[in-house]
Simulated assay, not measured.
Amino acid sequence: MSRDGTPEDARKAEAPIKGRGAASRVAGRFEARALRGEDDGWGSVYEDLAEAPKPRTTVAVERARSIISRNQSPDIAFSQSVNPYRGCEHGCVYCFARPSHAYLDLSPGLDFETKLFAKTNAAERLRAELAKPGYVPAPIALGINTDGWQPIERDHGISRACLEVLLETKHPLSIVTKGSAIVRDLDLLAQLAQHGLVSVFVSVTTLDNALSAKLEPRAAAPHMRLKMIAGLRAAGVPVGVLVAPVIPMITDKHLEHILEAAHQAGAQAAGYVLLRLPHELKDIWREWLRLHYPERAGHVMSLVRQMRGGKDYDSAFGSRMRGQGPFAELIAMRFAKTRKRLGFGALPALRSDLFVAPRKPTPQGELF
């Protein structure tokens, strides 16, 4: 182990990859084999490894068997969600969803942001599941595990297709995004908002463009996210800002500035989440720190462990989003004080009483 706690065999990336958050193919926890390249002097090693200087984004079609996921987590505000994609091209190095790629025998590192899957039948499956007898409507979180409005949404339009189904059935939904593609769907979101069926939180990590480019290289720039907030508010869509994640010694100093800028742009509510490092994410994060902030890597990880009971991560409900200890309490007090000063409130509750179940498709079509 190195001084900052990084496993020596994980310290292989020599430089960041421009336009990518991860710098190497960190092995997934379920992988049964490992790849190692041996350069023959012609640079051909890069043809077979994920650590290519400029790894390309590929999108595979996935035909989902089911689309609504359900949870009983007491510390999140939704009980069901729909994820139109697997993986996310935004490349946010801190993304808590990265370890989910390990279930596909892919790396939570570079594979997560370069080997993507589009669930092209998501809207079809959503319609079928909403039509099931006995279905009880409850707000659906659209695009939670990976961003529904990441860059490939512009080509595939799967999130928009799901919005169309939810508007047709008058079903409530919530959205968290940092993708500027969402502004193309303001027409649908405005109609949903008229019925009290939608709320949106725009995720903002920092207002520093240079830092954003390192942390979340293919997400919308900070100033664009403020424009997204303004555009949503102007369209009548209830909108809030989510300062996530708050990272000690990296982004925590921006907390008040983000809240002030978002409030000025029109955000009506605010929330925050501390950095979370489940499973392989802790190795991806340590590598990022080593490459971008080697002089403070040890201090950052020390504060992270102080907020997680001495560990890199504590998944316990109630503390996993907010942490514990003096530093976490300081963040909570700063947030509460600024939230009160700016007058942030809560977004209106979503309506579930307007739901109209879709008709099941039949061989006769819509003759009657």
Rank of each mutant, 00 (worst) to 15 (best):
56 R>I: 03
58 T>M: 11
63 R>H: 05
87 G>K: 03
75 D>F: 06
95 C>E: 03
88 C>D: 01
56 R>G: 10
57 T>A: 07
101 H>M: 11
90 H>Y: 00
75 D>W: 05
79 S>W: 08
73 S>M: 14
95 C>S: 05
77 A>P: 07
83 N>V: 09
84 P>R: 06
63 R>F: 09
101 H>F: 14
88 C>H: 00
81 S>R: 13
72 Q>K: 13
60 A>S: 14
102 A>M: 04
103 Y>Q: 04
68 I>D: 03
95 C>L: 13
101 H>C: 07
74 P>D: 03
85 Y>F: 11
96 F>A: 12
73 S>L: 15
79 S>G: 13
61 V>E: 15
57 T>Y: 10
102 A>D: 10
62 E>S: 14
90 H>N: 04
82 V>N: 03
56 R>W: 03
94 Y>S: 08
68 I>F: 06
60 A>Q: 07
85 Y>A: 05
71 N>G: 12
104 L>E: 15
105 D>A: 08
77 A>I: 11
105 D>K: 10
93 V>L: 07
72 Q>S: 12
82 V>A: 02
66 S>G: 15
86 R>S: 13
66 S>Y: 15
68 I>K: 01
65 R>E: 02
98 R>P: 13
86 R>V: 07
104 L>V: 00
96 F>R: 04
92 C>D: 04
75 D>P: 10
67 I>C: 01
77 A>K: 06
69 S>R: 11
68 I>P: 06
95 C>H: 02
89 E>G: 04
69 S>N: 14
